[in-house]
Design a protein around this nucleic acid. Structure first.
Lengths: 182, 182
DNA sequence: GACAATACGGAGACTGTCTCCGTTTAGCAA
DNA sequence: TTGCTAAACGGAGACAGTCTCCGTATTGTC
């Protein structure tokens, strides 16, 4: 990759990060290009679709997911607390951008999605938490990480769209947790 | 309302019904106006926002909700079957249009939404099912119809976006049902 | 320093939203 | 009927966002 191309790529991602955080995923891409100080053509060459840009913006965020799963695994308390802690962190993780929960959860399980790598990271992180609880024989075993990701992601999507605060989300997560525990 | 106004109103709703069913809620409104044989001005005078049009299209569908709740109440089997039957019907009801589940569930609890009346009908229908099960002391009593609507609506939204078939949705509904039952 | 190869960027085609306002029509009263 | 007025119509067009094409500029190599 040529030096100028790399520079513009980084600028666009940085402008997009700010824009997505402030105005959500449906903000104007031409405006992001303008913010980054490049033409729209440059943006669309680097990122043919909106999802490709979203994927790039999420890249830095992936490491954070692993860390959070690790922390959830060492969380004090019984299975219910571990599970709920992970759920709450999961919701927080995918809610950094407005519209994020719906975007991520909708792509979950879709191998053709541009953000599939992100979904896989989330799923395997959740899978680790689930496996650990399965070792303790605490959760039902007919449920997959994908289903859990969809259940919790669905709640996150609703909360995001309705702008619910975490206090209102908690009881819904409890229902799902209780439904999963043996 | 003048006769010509009434005629155009009905034509627009009918064209919108078809368009929403075939192409989802984000279809072009000018195209709907064209399908209905009216100018865009006429459409926007009758329906200032997209949601107002969606609300009108949903009107006929409301009666159906009540019926479905009635049927769920007379459903054979234990509380778990009654609840799951209602959940499955609920998902089907709000999934008649692509994008419907997210739209409806996102507006749930928002008193300022143009489709709030539809949300209230759904909520009270669900409330009746919930009350009946509460009489039998079958469900936990710290949960509200609004929360249940959001839980099931969240699943429906994910299923709609990921184009899951009912067979894949069922296990997720079971988790929620089990989490709600005592 | 010359020359490909690569990348840039903005004009503009296209699509959808929404409004303004000149024109038409329904419905009523004489 | 006819005439009148309030109500409704509808389409031109302003505006915003998407995305592409292609002439121009830059990079890095020989």
């Amino acid at each position: 990759m040529r030096a100028d191309a790399k520079r513009n790529y980084d600028r666009i991602v940085e402008a997009a990060r700010t824009a997505f955080r402030q105005r959500g995923y449906d903000t104007s891409l031409d405006q992001i290009a303008k913010d980054a100080g490049v033409g729209p053509g440059t943006l669309y060459r680097h990122f043919p679709t909106r999802d490709d840009l979203i994927d790039a913006v999420m890249q830095a965020w992936v490491d954070h997911v692993e860390d959070t799963a690790d922390k959830a695994l060492t969380h004090e308390g019984g299975p219910r607390e571990v599970l709920l802690n992970w759920f709450e962190e999961y919701v927080r993780l995918i809610s950094v951008h407005k519209g994020g929960p719906a975007k991520i959860t909708g792509a979950m399980g879709d191998d053709a999605s541009p953000i599939r790598t992100k979904c896989q990271v989330l799923q395997s992180a959740g899978g680790r938490v689930l496996d650990r609880l399965r070792d303790e024989d605490a959760v039902r075993d007919d449920v997959t990480p994908l289903q859990v990701a969809r259940l919790v992601g669905g709640i996150a999507a609703v909360a995001d769209q309705s702008e619910l605060d975490p206090v209102a989300v908690r009881p819904m997560l409890e229902v799902v947790a209780d439904g999963l525990l043996k």
